[in-house]
């Protein structure tokens, strides 16, 4: 498993690719920037894609939708969740 900083960079690259944020570069995304509405401006379909990303790439299944609100707050919170739940 990568260390947290490596994971954060990798997550930014994955999110840009998976969510087709072709006008963004990893350095445009702050580790603590909100992913939804303000910040990166993701929408509900993007949220579903992030859930798929967690399952597909990290084999992590969210327990419930409410949990997603905390997990997907920022790249930093996503990285923490992955590190905590990866097997």
């Amino acid at each position: 498993m990568k260390n947290k900083q490596e994971l954060i960079l990798h997550l930014k690259e994955q999110i840009i690719k998976q969510l087709k944020l072709e006008d963004k570069k990893p350095e445009d995304i702050g580790d603590h920037d909100p992913l939804f509405v303000e910040g990166l401006g993701l929408d509900s379909i993007d949220a579903l894609e992030l859930i798929v990303l967690l399952q597909q790439e990290y084999h992590i299944k969210l327990k419930n939708a409410e949990e997603g609100q905390d997990v997907f707050r920022s790249i930093d919170t996503m990285a923490d969740y992955i590190l905590e739940h990866s097997v």
Partner: peptide, 10 residues
């Protein structure tokens, strides 16, 4: 065939 994509489905 790999994973269904919500972003494609819409």
């Amino acid at each position: 065939k790999a994973y269904p994509s919500p972003a494609l489905f819409v």
